[in-house]
Simulated assay, not measured.
Amino acid sequence: MTAAARRASGLTPLVLVCLSLVYVVWGSTYFGIKVAIETLPPLGMLAVRFVLAGALLLAFLRLRGAPWPTAREWGASALVGTLLLGGGTGLVTLAERDASSSVAALVIAVSPLFAALFGRLWGERTRGREWLGIGVGLLGIALLNLGELRATPQAALLLILAPICWTFGSQWSRRLPLPAGLMGSAAEMLTGGGVLLGLSLLLGEPWGTPSAASLWALAYLTVFGSLVAYSAYMYLVAHTRPALATSYAYVNPVVAVLLGVGLGGERLGPLGWVALGVILAGVLLVAWPRPEAEAAP
């Protein structure tokens, strides 16, 4: 593919780097969350993760001369942070108390479908090949759920609500007056983390003595899952089409299953491995560049 074709399709080098980070890092965070909440309260753990990551990023940006967000930008950031981090990540983390890290990532793979539907509310067009890719990806999820991966009804409900919150917040964020650049990510993590902290205190989550494994998992989630991957995702939301920005949901299950099977003792039968191939086919259909003629606005 020529450089001109990559620009026309939206697959610039920076977009490709951000996609790679979101694909791999977020795929590993499902297993990281499972390890972290073994000895840490789910919502409290997330609050520490996002408040710490947001504060570090905010301090770094301020030292580089980035302007402080306005009151209007803080309000918009609170809306997005609540939907993405409180509703999206928070519900997934609560579900992982009763579901494997693999099945959590698999159910979240419906995100591109919700993204396409919500995008249409704001007049964005989803191409036929993207719809085909979404359908193929969902077929892969159906095959996986015929296998050995299961979740309790409550966990399944939380995992269905999570991508609705996440994708609606993602699409809405494109129309809200958010702070420019990474400052938007910092403000969203701080406000979303504050909401999670309030919920943790309201619910009276108990804090015990965390294990070393949980603390290492929290550190990984904070640095790579939040500072690195979340910032990369918000760049994709602002600069790419919805189906491509949320295509991570088809690759994350592959990474999550491999880690769950390899490190967490989870099982995946032959049908599951076939389903992973179907999922990869779906993401290729969604992410494959449009012809230059179609990519032009």
Rank of each mutant, 00 (worst) to 15 (best):
L203T: 11
L203H: 13
G204Y: 11
G204A: 11
G204V: 10
P206V: 15
P206Q: 15
P206G: 14
P206W: 07
W207N: 13
G208K: 06
G208P: 04
G208Y: 04
T209D: 13
S211H: 08
A212P: 01
A213F: 10
A213H: 10
A213R: 14
W216Y: 02
A217N: 09
A217M: 08
A217E: 12
L218M: 14
L218T: 06
A219G: 09
A219K: 11
A219L: 09
A219R: 13
Y220N: 10
Y220R: 11
Y220H: 06
Y220M: 07
Y220T: 07
Y220G: 07
Y220A: 03
L221G: 06
V223C: 08
V223M: 05
F224P: 05
G225W: 13
G225Q: 04
S226T: 07
S226P: 02
S226F: 03
S226N: 09
S226A: 12
L227K: 02
L227W: 00
V228D: 01
V228P: 04
V228H: 00
Y230P: 00
S231C: 08
S231H: 01
A232T: 00
Y233T: 00
M234G: 03
M234W: 11
M234I: 14
M234H: 09
V237I: 14
V237E: 00
A238M: 03
H239L: 01
H239V: 03
R241F: 00
R241V: 00
P242E: 13
P242Y: 07
P242T: 11
P242Q: 07
A243K: 12
L244E: 08
L244C: 02
L244V: 15
L244W: 04
A245T: 07
A245L: 05
A245P: 05
A245M: 06
T246P: 01
Y248K: 01
Y248R: 06
Y248F: 12
A249K: 13
A249P: 08
Y250E: 14
Y250H: 15
Y250K: 12
V251G: 03
V251W: 08
V251I: 15
V251E: 05
V251M: 12
V251N: 06
N252Q: 04
N252Y: 04
P253T: 05
P253Q: 06
P253Y: 08
P253I: 12
V254W: 00
V254G: 04
A256S: 14
V257R: 01
V257W: 08
V257N: 00
L258C: 08
L259M: 11
L259S: 00
L259T: 03
L259Y: 08
G260A: 10
V261R: 07
V261S: 10
G264F: 05
G264D: 13
G265L: 00
E266C: 04
E266T: 04
E266Y: 06
R267G: 03
L268R: 01
G269D: 15
G269K: 13
L271K: 01
G272Q: 07
G272H: 10
W273M: 09
W273I: 09
V274G: 11
L276Y: 08
L276R: 04
G277S: 10
V278A: 12
I279A: 15
I279T: 14
L280A: 14
